[in-house]
Design a protein around this nucleic acid. Sequence first.
DNA 1: CCCGATTCCTTCGGGTGTGAAAGAGTTTCG
DNA 2: CGAAACTCTTTCACACCCGAAGGAATCGGG
Lengths: 148, 148
Amino acid sequence: MARVRAVDRRLFLLIEIAARRLSRDADQRLHAEAGVSASQAAVLFLLLRRGERRMGAIGEVLALGAPAVTGLVSRMEQAGLVTRRRDAKDRRGALVALSETGRLAAERADAVLRAFNTELDERLGDEAADTLYDALTRLASDAGDPVG
Amino acid sequence: MARVRAVDRRLFLLIEIAARRLSRDADQRLHAEAGVSASQAAVLFLLLRRGERRMGAIGEVLALGAPAVTGLVSRMEQAGLVTRRRDAKDRRGALVALSETGRLAAERADAVLRAFNTELDERLGDEAADTLYDALTRLASDAGDPVG
DNA sequence: CCCGATTCCTTCGGGTGTGAAAGAGTTTCG
DNA sequence: CGAAACTCTTTCACACCCGAAGGAATCGGG
């Protein structure tokens, strides 16, 4: 059994610990059943739902800095999950798109995380899950600005 | 304004995004005002409250694997924040203790995170903060096992 | 038109995490 | 007692994140 009391009311540290535990679990399942990491899955979902995106847009949605996106997309490109090409309209930008391999991986990953999410909902209960979802959404939005 | 809708009801991805934003913010403040990282601050708090601890115990509380603890403590030792010595009673173990420098850094870091936590509470509201705290505590406990 | 400011991405150096395997110490049991 | 099993930490190779700095393309004012 894990002891969390040590960090007491430090909400921020608690979030980190919870995120670490969940990440490790989700990462293992994703690797086993979809062959991708959790970070890669997040990019796959974004591209699956919204289509081709620029590096900066990916970083904005996932709260990642530019260097993180560059590295993540590079590894995914090397794994054949996505393609990267220059934006013809603005040649500074790079457009990232799902490959066919990537689309299949995205669907497998979606099934894995859907199941994982259901487990979490059951562990927490509907009401707590909803509150948690709302609170995290607010925290995941830019600090200072209300969500709007 | 950040867009979070893309990851929709994937609670796990949402937690990662929220944790990343908060970490970045907290990390900057901690570096500026206490000269330590968020991970290091977590270790400092643990040692401040509970005293000397073994590597494994640190990992258990913070949900870190053994290699992560080794690296973290090594950097902290090099920075003069903690001391590491063999456990005389069981010479496999290593005991980590706060140095005087570490104790001062821990107190400064505590002030920083206390203020940060107050901001979060205000942003969320008391009720939501309590629910969030409870839910995260359950998630931060080992999966499967109830918190007890 | 052109030079400076801006935007977008990448590179670089370094902290932080993982799983797998190795090394050292303790315990267990035949 | 001694070999096997177990526990604790470290090392290794790698993924992933950051801030700072650099390079290429675009934009904007003179």
